[in-house]
Design a protein around this nucleic acid. Sequence first.
RNA 1: GCGGACGUGGCGGAACCGGUAGACGCAAGGGACUUAAAAUCCCUCGGGCCUUGCCCGUGCGGGUUCGAUCCCCGCCGUCCGCACCA
Length: 894
Amino acid sequence: MTVVTNHGEGPPKIPVLLGENPGMATERYNPRASEPRWQKAWEEARLFETRNDDGRPTYYVLEMFPYPSGRIHIGHTRNYTMGDVVARYKRAKGFSVLHPMGWDAFGLPAENAAIQNKVHPKAWTYENIATMRSQLKMMGLSIDWAREFATCDVDYYHRQQMLFIDFYEKGLVTRKTSKVNWDPVDQTVLANEQVIDGRGWRSGALVEQRELAQWFFKITDYAEDLLQAIDSLENWPDKVRTMQRNWIGRSEGLSIRWALVESTAPAGESRLEVYTTRPDTIFGASFMAVAPDHPLARKAAEGNAKLAAFIEECRRIGTSAAVLETAEKKGFDTGIRVKHPFDPSWTLPVYVANFVLMEYGTGAIFGCPSGDQRDLDFANKYGLPVIPVVMPEGADAATFQITEESYSDDGVMINSRFLDGLTNKQAFEEVANRLEQEMLDGRPVAERKVNFRLRDWGVSRQRYWGCPIPMIHCDACGIVPVPKQDLPVVLPEDVDFDKPGNPLDRHPTWRNVKCPKCGADARRETDTMDTFVDSSWYFARFTSPHSDDPVERGAANRWLPVDQYIGGVEHAILHLLYSRFFIRGMRDTGHLDLAEPFKGLFTQGMVVHETYRSEDGRWLQPSEVRIESAGGERRAYEIATGKEVAIGPLEKMSKSKKNTVSPEEITESFGADTARWFMLSDSPPERDVEWTDDGAAGAHRFVQRVWRLVTEVAPAIEGVAPKASGEGNAAAISKPAHKALKAVGEDIERLAFNRAIARIHELVNELQGPFAALASADAATRAAAREATEILIHLIAPYMPHLAEECWARIGGNGLVAASRWPDYDPELVVDNLIVLPVQINGKKRGDLTIAREADQAAVEKAVLELDFVQKALNGALPRKVIVVPQRIVNVVA
RNA sequence: GCGGACGUGGCGGAACCGGUAGACGCAAGGGACUUAAAAUCCCUCGGGCCUUGCCCGUGCGGGUUCGAUCCCCGCCGUCCGCACCA
């Protein structure tokens, strides 16, 4: 046998692998010997290193890069396998494919490890990266490792500091004092997005509110654009697009200033500005409510101890979101009153209320109880009037009442003076138009205003292991950016973690610097950047990972946007929104020329496993448990003790519940190809997949089955020129092969990996019979078998690349499969001349009609009416109607 | 509360634009080969019945249609996201 490889080293040695069954004709495929050898062959041929000056059309496929926590998780493996299937397929289709890998390497766990194990965060991180890199390499991923970097590499964060300064100079970075979310366990500030149910996203600690000076990215400058552009992201899941829309939270309304009644107003206060999306309900107003930390509330509290106490109580409860969820709506009457903008004689009370948020709108509202359930509950509690102002169309204005349930839908205006009879939409316009004309203090009483829920992105973190913010505080000059020639600001390595807080804060030589402007003594900013900054542009850096500039503009424009991005849905808001902002920022600072980083997005499901728990409450690993099934019932026993253990529900693999299977366990027992195949079979990629031993064994059986099929057919097709045929015995081989070739290609394009796998199974089933009879077959059939075998190998190659190479070598194929073109299907072979049409009578299938493909409607109708079971059903009568759907079905209506 | 997705055999799931419901795999049962096991191969596998064939069946109840897993209306259930957003 001659095997030619394209890296000029002669034939790889194929060991004769005798299985555990000496004497049998067929050898077992041995992945442990085969997989490392092919990985080496690919590496030596440098097949996956991508050049920026390659003239072919580009395709950028990327999986979200991992955090180097220590070990690769099986969930990572599924994620990277999906990307790898796409990468290998697109490469075979003739694209220049960029498929890189890197490490999201800054972050808290490294510091926690430093505190707990006295190991430096840097050492810990790079050791983890080394381990995980070798784990990934075992999976046979077609990654361009020449572009690898970690975000904690000085080379990377140096460029991030350059971007920070560019953004600062462009006005996209600001420093402001604001109430921030403080995580008392991690001792750092969190962005709103990192607070989940009132708890830190990483520590799980209840978040406190603190006033701090912080660095912010002005993501709100792009709120409208980020929202509008969601419509253009056609290859994103609707779910993610909706989540982003809601997160940005655009609303159109009116900002209205109400005059305070002078005799009731605190000194120096005369106006109260509120934001409303329902100005149409202004005649239903019965109270005003301000947030506990609204300036007016604070003023009013100065001379009112009870009010001050109430505000204090709100603030205390306000920090605990768990309480907040069930918290009762409470208010406190300040005694201040406001005048209604359309009727100065009508005054309303001003309450401080615990449900009004200072962060949204103006921190003040007018309450319209009839149109808002929360306002209604509040009014009922404090005995405030409830005036219905909008009623459903057709209701009777005289009798329409609101008591326990508010009416917030569209309708007709009532009890609203000049608005009566209008729709609420018309009333909105009328109120807005009138109040825009009305003047107060020389300005209009009201202005139309678009409000966003989106807040600016606070990026300051009081932590060591992150990208230093390249800023200097000088008493004389204020805030001075580090000059670009002085970059990078390198993280000092001589730090200790003995005390809580940020070690940079107490690093004497690093922290104290001269002001770059005036030369006086100054202090470095000791905050580091949120790690979400690191991940907001790494995909752009991959296009030119060694560039002195953050990105090489030509390369970024050439490769971006990422054609297919794959990752977990947990990043639907944070990472994806930040990245969309960041690329806009990079565009506006001249680094590249696009707005959207990710053209296609796919959110994959998790790998789950059932859990096992012993009688005394210990979680057990799958490897510690023996499963027995009898009579359809499964029972689990702890191997060490023999005692029965409880089988729990499917859950995401986690260390705490021990329901994990490591990638090594799988590769050692079955090989990487089996793991890759199994993780993509059965479940659709967007759903969770359950890892089961039976399933993995089943996948391995298929690996062996393909190997057996190829090794058994090899002698009959050796040296035969491949040629498909639609005639005679050969057709039974060529037709299924070409149909599968077409279907599998289409399925991979749609990321329907599970369907592609089903088609490959079908093809193997269909080839089995004809291949077994090949010894006595004619030349045309052998040529077809050769061609079909080559097709089969190409079809499995994206999924099981090592097995594909081994099979390819066995049939004497040229070069490496990984370097060869995806075959083209023959359109002639994927259609049949005779088709089988199902025949229905009154919508129920009663039989089939086999007829020439090109038969016209009349011919089909005639043939159908001659069928026995049709005549029997019609019983001599004429059909009322015959519906012929070309190429699909016939329905006879009796 | 608001928004989104989903509901199909014992299980994971197919079914492309309204056109044969259950592809493919797993599990299970039966058989062949074997001294035996493993491996492999073959058969059965939604339910029911008067079993050459017929009836029922895609969470439930209606509707549209020659024809509905798919579209419409009303429920029930599960999961996910946001959540006092004015």
